[in-house]
Design a protein around this nucleic acid. Structure first.
Length: 407
RNA sequence: GUGGGUAUAGCUCAGUUGGUUAGAGCACCAGAUUGUGGCUCUGGGGGCCAUGGGUUCGAGUCCCAUUAUCCACCCCA
């Protein structure tokens, strides 16, 4: 029996890191005014077809899609934004003239070939901000990710780009397609296909021939309209002023169709080929596109598995109590004490009678702060032997004294 | 979907040009003058060598297939 391909159990060290990350990320998100939302893992397939877009492989071949018993075309969510936007619209929040900020986390599913940092079930932590058109929000979101990664002690490089808006993007795309059509025969198979499916992706091609050809290609930032250009410059200014180092990557294209204007990606160089640890950007058209009232929005997602790979957990301090005895009678005497402690502290009771030495070893192994032991003497005198494993101090106590000590 | 690598103890891996009872480290259990932890030492339990075929007197070792897994392409967090 094994977990399915590309899926795995999160336990032990990884589970600790998972919770550690969630704790830090959620708290920072709350400090930035985001509130928690949990949306269903299963959604209508059309939601993703319309939002993530047709040019994306995610929708074309990577979705866990099926017809449910009611005949509905549904799928496991391959990403988080679409669901949150669907929630936003179906609760008619687009009708309220107000700003809404949400954070979420949970499993996402993509039927891909697994490799380092890539799984079929993976977890994302994300934030979505609705109703705020100012580029200050774009900046703030980047600042927030920076704060999370700094707190986790994770090194990264930040790449930013502007994808333009409805005014400047289409004309750029046209220019690029014209350029690509001219060189079509020299491009690799993938890029030839991309000319029609997603021309901007060609900028990102790793094929060496394509790379040299595309150096001549029109550069996106040079074709931005005045408005987009102004915002992009302000974003850079704010990042600089706040000591967030970045590079402009004119080839940075987000994989999902809904992005416009600011796009960014946080990359780690310690992860191999799947180095993106966080990515996001603005998506001002998506709410309207999914049937809501036009609402500007910006957001991001962090890949939790990739973050977990980079987290170094701080040393855990000794915590709680370990109880053991030398015979069955002693173990039974410990039972009510353990119950008492568990009301507000961690306590572990070993049921198997052992020698003191074995208990001390075991207490050490579970990282307990105290070891409580009942041996022959203690049983006879109705006392407890207690050792502080950190301070290496030991005491003989009555049950009363012990309970008193806890207060 | 396309390449390449790997598959031996719970984990990480050795295993010579095919040759007798398959090894180490970690982990686990038990001991080292009677009740004192993290270190050390000694001993112990644990393996259908991924599965199915083939070559051979003889296969963990060579060949083929299957499956799983890893890395890369692709895609993306």
């Amino acid at each position: 029996m094994k977990a399915l391909r590309g899926m795995k159990d999160i336990a032990f060290e990884e589970a600790k890191k998972y919770l550690y990350f969630l704790d830090i990320a959620s708290n920072i998100a709350k400090n930035y005014g985001f509130s928690y939302v949990e949306t269903p893992i299963l959604e209508e397939t059309s939601l993703f077809k319309r939002s993530v877009g047709n040019s994306s492989d995610i929708v074309n071949k990577e979705m866990y899609q099926f017809i449910d018993k009611g005949g509905h075309d549904v799928c496991l969510r391959p990403e988080g934004t679409a669901g949150v936007v669907r929630f936003f619209i179906s609760n008619k929040l687009d009708r309220v003239q107000q700003k809404y900020k949400f954070f979420y986390y949970g499993p996402m599913f993509r039927y891909e070939r697994p490799q380092k940092g890539r799984f079929r079930e993976f977890h994302q932590f994300g934030c979505e901000s609705f109703g705020e058109a100012s580029v200050l929000e774009d900046y703030t979101i980047i600042e927030m990710i920076d704060a999370i990664l700094k707190k986790l002690n994770i090194a990264y490089t930040l790449e930013i780009n502007s994808l333009g808006c409805n005014e400047c993007m289409p004309s750029y795309k046209e220019r690029l397609v014209n350029f690509l059509e001219d060189k079509k025969e020299k491009l690799c198979q993938d890029c030839q296909r991309r000319i029609t499916t997603n021309p901007i992706r060609t900028l990102d091609c790793k094929n060496n021939d394509c790379k040299t050809i595309l150096q001549e290609a029109p550069k996106l930032p040079e074709y931005l309209c005045n408005n987009c250009k102004k915002d992009f410059e302000l974003l850079q200014k704010l990042l600089k002023e706040n000591n967030i180092t970045f590079t402009i990557n004119p080839k940075l294209v987000r994989g999902l169709d809904y992005y416009n204007k600011s796009a960014f990606e946080f990359v780690s160089n310690e992860l191999g080929a799947q180095g993106a640890i966080a990515g996001g950007g603005r998506y001002d058209k998506l709410v309207e596109y999914l049937g809501g009232r036009a609402t500007p929005a910006v957001g991001f997602a962090i890949g939790i598995e990739r973050i977990i790979d980079l987290i170094k957990l701080p040393n855990e301090p000794r915590e709680g109590f370990y109880f053991g005895a030398m015979n069955d009678e002693g173990v039974e005497k410990l039972l009510p004490l353990v119950k008492e402690i568990r009301k507000n502290k961690k306590a572990i009771l070993e049921y198997t009678p052992k020698k003191l030495k074995a208990h001390l070893k075991a207490a050490d192994k579970v990282n307990a702060k105290y070891c409580v032991f009942i041996g022959e003497d203690e049983l006879q005198n109705d006392t407890l032997w207690l050792k502080d494993l950190e301070q290496k101090e030991e005491k003989i106590l009555t049950t009363q004294e012990f309970l008193q000590m806890l207060k």
